[in-house]
């Protein structure tokens, strides 16, 4: 697989470490309570189709990326720096 790194172009997936659902960016507020954290830690969608997920460019620039992938075809529709995604979400929250 090839990951379209927003700064470095297409890079082979071998250079990356996969984490999973990009919802992990949305860590609950510490005051949100146990149920919110339980959901954050354990509840995952398993979509047949588009999936936003976290990849770490471990053998590269050490950026965490949010990659949008079609789980049915492996087609990758785009990748963003997770840091930018996280900042945007916090600004919007």
């Amino acid at each position: 697989m090839l990951i379209p790194h927003p700064l470095l172009g297409l890079r082979d997936a071998q250079e990356f470490t996969y984490l999973g659902d990009a919802a992990l960016i949305d860590r609950p507020d510490p005051e949100a309570g146990e149920a919110a954290f339980a959901s954050y830690v354990y509840d995952r969608d398993n979509p047949a189709g588009l999936h936003r997920e976290l990849w770490f460019h471990e053998q590269g620039d050490r950026s965490w990326l949010v990659v949008t992938r079609d789980t049915l075809t492996h087609e990758i529709l785009g990748a963003e720096l997770a840091r930018n995604v996280a900042r945007t979400r916090r600004a919007g929250a």
């Binding site: 470095l8 082979d12 590269g60």
Partner: peptide, 22 residues
């Protein structure tokens, strides 16, 4: 390395992996 040599022309620098070594 599994890199397109066009991305490693003179003047360029990249991190990658050789035989599992960063």
């Amino acid at each position: 390395v599994n890199l397109d040599p066009a991305r490693l022309a003179p003047g360029q620098a990249l991190r990658s992996v050789i035989d599992h070594m960063p």
